[in-house]
């Protein structure tokens, strides 16, 4: 599989890209920092065990003007395109975001507007090739209006909504859209936040997402336990949600 990967240098993206490289997928990395990209590309090359080189190009989710050139370079290097994976995004604690509206604006822009723009670019390219897979990391935070993730969760709710629609609209054209909803996973992004019960590790998430990509499942909770947790939270009545702290 020829995969363009936005966000492979860190966290769940790092774990997923490694599992892909180890099974022989061809990867092209997009990200913000050149030194980080080249180190991660080398890590993936060694893990893949083959002679394949992993290419990379700068692409910044905060700057949609970088999308076209980056995707051009990726398609050209891979000489093809079967899947686009987006794990990049921004996170901020609710208290910090409320104090810092410019930061709130950045997070809403990156997670919602710009991620969707990036998906639109990717979608067109995949459709032009007769379809493929678009796998994007949203969050369980977008499933229900909750006190501690009002702002971050809103950006992810919008993204999940878009991804679901995209899957309905283009499944028949051969484009499979996968919305990944990770629960709390211990990565650099969530560093400094006290892990709740059921906090997971990146690698089990990667394995589960990989299986969803292979099956073409439109939505996946990861780690698996978060599917059960969210099933309960989704059906809690409003008066309960108003009282509880999560």
């Amino acid at each position: 599989m020829k995969v363009v990967f936005l966000g492979a240098t860190r966290g769940m993206g790092r774990a997923l890209s490694r599992r892909m490289a180890e099974r022989g997928d061809e990867l092209f990395l997009l990200g913000r920092k050149e030194s980080d990209l080249s180190t991660s590309a080398k890590d993936l090359e060694i893990r893949s065990g083959g002679d394949a080189s992993v290419g990379f190009h700068l692409c910044d989710l905060e700057d949609p003007s970088t999308f076209e050139a980056a995707l051009d370079k990726a398609e050209e290097t891979l000489s093809g395109l079967d899947a686009v994976v987006v794990t990049g995004g921004l996170f901020g604690k609710q208290e910090d975001l409320e104090q810092d509206l410019p930061l709130t604006r950045r997070i809403l822009n990156v997670n919602f507007t710009n991620t969707i723009l990036f998906c639109e670019h990717s979608k067109q390219r995949l459709l032009r090739r007769g379809g493929g897979t678009l796998c994007v990391f949203s969050s369980v935070a977008g499933d229900r209006g909750r006190k501690p993730v009002a702002l971050y969760g809103a950006s992810k709710a919008g993204l999940s909504h878009y991804l679901e629609s995209l899957d309905h609209k283009h499944r028949a054209d051969g484009l499979v859209t996968i919305c990944v909803k990770p629960g709390f996973v211990k990565t650099g992004m969530t560093e400094g936040v006290d892990p709740p019960p059921f906090a997971g590790e990146p690698d089990p998430v990667a394995m589960r997402v990989l299986s969803a990509i292979d099956r073409g499942a439109p939505m996946v909770y990861a780690p698996a336990v978060w599917g059960h947790v969210m099933r309960i939270i989704r059906f809690l009545p409003r008066f309960v949600m108003r009282r509880v702290g999560f």
């Binding site: 080398k42 890590d43 060694i46 893990r47 650099g188």
Partner: peptide
């Protein structure tokens, strides 16, 4: 533990 990349082999 998050700094776990292979750099050369």
């Amino acid at each position: 533990t998050l700094g776990d990349r292979l750099l050369d082999f």
